[in-house]
């Protein structure tokens, strides 16, 4: 029994890690008022980039850096379309997803199914990892796990307390007023989209060089879309994103455990999506303002317009 609890908890943390990374990035992006539906594609590109670079150089950390760079660069497309060209963000984001999935499929073709030899060692925190039940799951994990939590906490602080973070949030709420304060709204939005893309790519890197240690087309398996849902589930708050991501991760793990008990895995797999909708309805019933959505989300900003 103890083994089952430990392994469930451990796999929950692993499953939640990429969700948390991508969600944190999308929160920063959406807080600036830009909806980015390109997460799935950028994640795929991050995964393939990290895998190829790790395989050729033998250094997983170089792979992570390369994925980060690739994710940030390709996100410029969405920033350009949605900020400079004031294009429809839904369509532009979908285009980014298609492009990301397409490019990763093409670039990654020769690498499909090849095993990764250079591994990223787990980080084990002494003493804490000896705590019964939770110790091993929480304190002996892939570096990505610690990175994801660290970045979520940093982003929380960044958005709430730093000058740039406040500028990002106020750009999402009222770009015009923000601009009159002398803030370059366009620059803020570019920056937010690019940071968000970097996070998505990190999530992809986790999948290919830490989680499965291989690359295959379609390995992101809809996680990018889940991150977009989680962004709302977490009400655009990186702190809440931590709980949300691991809750969803847990449901993914539990669905396999429930199978022998006669509960359909598809029913359990459906739960996170139903839960998201239900929670949104509940919040909206209570007080729609509490939804806390950036007021200008997905609305292009045009300079000099009254």
């Amino acid at each position: 029994m103890e083994d089952i609890i430990i392994s469930t908890l451990q796999r929950t943390m692993v499953a939640g890690t990429p969700l948390l990374l991508a969600t944190t990035g999308e929160i920063i992006c959406e807080r600036s008022g830009i909806l980015n539906l390109g997460v799935e594609g950028v994640m795929a590109l991050g995964a393939v980039t990290a895998f190829i670079v790790t395989m050729t150089t033998g250094s997983p950390w170089l792979g992570v850096l390369a994925a980060l760079a690739a994710g940030m660069v390709i996100s410029i497309i969405h920033a350009f379309a949605s900020v400079t060209l004031q294009a429809n963000q839904v369509v532009s984001g979908l285009a980014l997803t298609m492009l990301g999935i397409g490019l990763s499929g093409m670039v990654g073709k020769p690498y499909v199914g090849k095993p990764l030899i250079s591994k990223m060692d787990d980080i084990t925190i002494p003493v804490l990892s000896d705590i019964p039940y939770i110790g091993k799951a929480l304190f002996s994990q892939s570096p990505f796990f610690f990175l994801a939590i660290f970045l979520a906490l940093v982003s929380w602080f960044f958005l709430q307390r730093t000058r740039l973070g406040i500028q990002i949030r106020s750009t999402g709420e009222n770009p015009k007023a923000t601009e009159t304060q002398g803030v370059n709204v366009f620059l803020i939005r570019y920056l937010s989209v690019i940071i968000g893309g970097g996070f998505s790519a990190l999530a992809g890197a986790h999948l290919s060089i830490s989680y499965s240690k291989s690359w295959i087309e379609g390995m992101t398996a809809g996680r990018g879309w889940i991150a977009i849902a989680l962004t709302i589930f977490a009400l655009w708050h990186p702190g809440r994103a931590i709980w949300a991501a691991f809750l969803f991760g847990g449901i993914f793990v539990v669905q396999y455990l429930m199978q022998p008990l006669g509960i359909s895995p598809n029913f359990l797999a459906m739960l996170p999506y139903i839960a998201t909708l239900l929670i949104l309805v509940l919040i909206s019933l209570k007080d729609p303002r509490k939804l806390n959505a950036p007021a200008m989300l997905a609305t292009p900003y045009k300079r000099g317009e009254r």
């Binding site: 594609g41 497309i77 379309a81 060209l85 004031q86 294009a87 429809n88 369509v91 532009s92 979908l94 285009a95 980014l96 997803t97 298609m98 492009l99 990301g100 999935i101 397409g102 490019l103 990763s104 499929g105 093409m106 990654g108 073709k109 087309e217």
Partner: peptide, 23 residues
């Protein structure tokens, strides 16, 4: 011998250029 995802590159790129054209 191109991967299935090639279609996504074509579709994604065309879509991006259609958006730009709209501008």
């Amino acid at each position: 011998g191109l991967p299935a995802a090639t279609v996504d590159i074509v579709n994604g790129t065309l879509l991006i250029f259609l958006i730009m054209g709209d501008y």
